[in-house]
Write a protein that binds this DNA or RNA. Structure first.
Length: 557
RNA sequence: GCGCCCGUAGCUCAGCUGGAUAGAGCGUCGGACUUCGAAUCCGCAGGCCGCAGGUUCGAAUCCUGCCGGGCGUACCA
């Protein structure tokens, strides 16, 4: 049994199709119909503006079209109590109250898989996120990108895409040398050798910690080794250890990448060179002032970009081109990059790059994540990266918990800047939406606990009679539960994970309100069974949605 | 200068692929625990959707111009 929304959409779609055929029009584009939930309940459970959008094609007035559409909706009486034409030409649908129970049966039947669908049809998608340079610990801005990337990937998986989560390690180039040298100098310092620590080196305390670690493990064996000989060890050591730390911090944050991809491996395999050659053959490379330029202006970038400098070194951008070429060679149909918004200037050149490599611009989707302002009690926390004074992601997770941190990162559109207040994140109140949602789940678990203690049946081979559910709040809950798959689908299509937390807040708000004015476990056995069945469905959806967010669904709190 | 993002209630933000009377949380004020969890609920108040034009049956949403804030404008990584 299909869900209410799907059935109605289908019915409407057929009716519009018939109407267009009768009028001799066969235009697929005019056939898309959309159902919205009106803001005002007097306007029905669902409404469509399709009659208005059809006025231009059919050249008739919208209310007439609306009537014609309604007349062609077959089997509407089974599902609908009433259909109205309203305002300039809206069609408002009032679902039969007894039809909503189908939603609950559907949820019980699908259980964990409720919300899972097959929009993607197995299409391979890669989500690349975090990809912070392995030169220091992750900070809170990386956390936001991590949460968004991780959850977006989860959502796409739930929608039938075959998704890999990938981390690009910038382990090549001068910054790694600088990193190694920073460690080397701290090592000497720890041995009591006077050093001069340059400003452009990595000054954070974590480098001193690492230096002590090297000292413990290796003793003073590098003390008298010439710098050029010692550096490779220190570079590799620093890079590996910092990357380990990043991995651990992500793990503590609930994020696991499937693939860790090394930039150096592209250089080692000659892929950077090959990519430049491929672009040369395609005619997108020219030489000027001793450098090789990529003609990104051919695809709308504001200027061309250097890929090989006059000194013969390839640029970072060249490696990025090779990396993206490599992604498509690994057969990803769509590649999603999650970048800090401070990199937005790179979007046109990267988009140009994938097109020059023979892909559609839309094969690369870039999500820009705005910066995070870290606050404590409303006051900004100093965040100077160079001085190494930043608050790390790990510190934030340790202080406020992974659930609160993730939820807060996700409760905002990614292109909106985010104020992250450590005190608010720790508050166990409604200031903090994560507890509001988790509390509902714990509450429901508690109800089931009590039910079991009282010996009330609360698992069902066959659905109970749902006719006792007819209160407005009960119908509203069922309707909201029925919207969940649609919410997941739209989050996937629009690449907007924040839709899930907002949906959860709505659902939970409705539930809490209902809970406060009704008892689930009561004298009336039939009513109790029906309400428990509803409650179980709410709990199921909460679990599924929180699972997508990587936020726990506690039984007690 | 040019480019991108943002400007919605006192605060933090949804709504933006055009739809009917613009929403939520916080904060203020006032109510609800002998009951399955009060980390909850109920109610009151709060708006020229930055400003000005345009597009059309209809604009917070699309277009143009301004104002204000953030970011970016390398043969750096």
């Amino acid at each position: 049994m299909a869900l209410i929304r799907e059935r109605l959409t289908h019915m409407l779609h057929q009716a519009v199709k018939d109407l267009l055929l009768e009028s001799g029009i066969q235009n697929e584009e005019d056939l898309k119909v959309e159902l919205e939930i009106p803001k005002i309940s007097d306007h029905g459970d669902y409404a469509t503006n399709t009659a208005m959008t059809l006025t231009k094609v059919l050249r008739r007035n919208p209310r007439e079209i609306a009537q014609a559409v309604i007349d062609r909706m077959e089997g509407r009486d089974e599902l609908l109590a009433r259909v109205e034409i309203a305002g300039p030409g809206f069609v408002n649908f009032f679902v039969r109250p007894d039809a909503w129970g189908e939603v609950l049966k559907d949820i019980h039947e699908k259980a964990d898989a409720y919300g899972v669908q097959n929009l993607g049809r197995g299409k391979r998608v890669q989500v690349e996120f975090v990809s912070a340079n392995p030169t220091g610990p992750l900070h809170i801005g990386h956390g936001r990108g991590a949460a968004i990337g991780d959850v977006l990937a989860n959502i796409l998986r739930a929608c039938g895409y075959q998704v890999d989560k990938e981390y690009y390690i910038n382990d090549a180039g001068k910054q790694m040398q600088t990193l190694g040298r920073s460690l080397y100098l701290r090592y000497l310092e720890a041995l009591g050798v006077p050093i001069d620590f340059p400003d452009d080196h990595y000054r954070g305390d974590y480098m001193k910690d690492l230096a002590r670690e090297v000292l413990d493990r290796e003793g003073d064996r590098y003390k008298d080794v010439p710098e050029e000989e010692a550096l490779p060890f220190f570079t590799r050591y620093a890079g590996d250890r910092i990357l380990d730390g990043i991995r651990e911090d992500l793990e503590a944050f609930g994020v696991q990448h499937d693939i860790w991809f090394s930039e150096q491996s592209l250089h080692d395999a000659g892929e950077v060179q090959r990519t430049i050659e491929a672009l040369e053959r395609a005619g997108y490379i020219y030489e000027q002032d001793g450098a090789k330029w990529f003609r990104s202006t051919a695809f709308g970038d504001e200027k061309d970009r250097v890929v090989v400098r006059a000194n013969g070194m390839t640029t970072y951008f060249a490696a990025d081109l090779a990396y993206h070429k490599n992604k498509y060679e690994r057969n990803y149909e769509t590649v999603i990059d999650i970048w800090g918004a401070d990199h937005h200037g790179y979007v046109p050149r990267m988009t140009a790059g994938v097109q020059a490599l023979g892909r559609k611009a839309s094969d690369l989707r870039i999500i820009l994540v705005q910066l995070v302002n870290l606050l404590r009690g409303g006051k900004p926390v100093a965040m100077s990266t160079r001085a190494g004074e930043f608050v790390t992601l790990r510190e934030v997770v340790d202080e406020v918990g992974k659930d609160a941190a993730r939820f807060i990162f996700l409760t905002r559109r990614s292109d909106s800047p985010l104020d992250f207040d450590l005190e608010v994140a720790k508050m166990q109140s409604n200031d903090n939406p994560v507890y509001y949602v988790q509390y509902a789940h714990a509450r429901l678990c508690s109800v089931f606990q009590v039910a079991r203690e009282k010996g009330v049946a609360c698992s069902w081979d066959v659905p109970p009679d749902l006719s006792p559910l007819h209160q407005p709040k009960e119908l509203e809950l069922m309707k909201l539960l029925g919207e969940y798959p649609q919410v997941v689908a739209s989050a996937a299509e629009q690449l907007e994970p924040h839709r899930i937390p907002y949906y959860l807040s709505d659902l939970v708000s409705c539930f809490h309100s209902y809970y406060n004015q009704n008892r689930i476990l009561g004298e009336d056995e039939a009513l109790t069974q029906a309400r428990l069945y509803l409650a179980a469905a709410v709990r199921m959806v909460l679990r599924n949605a929180l699972g997508l967010l990587g936020v726990s669904a506690p039984e007690k709190m």
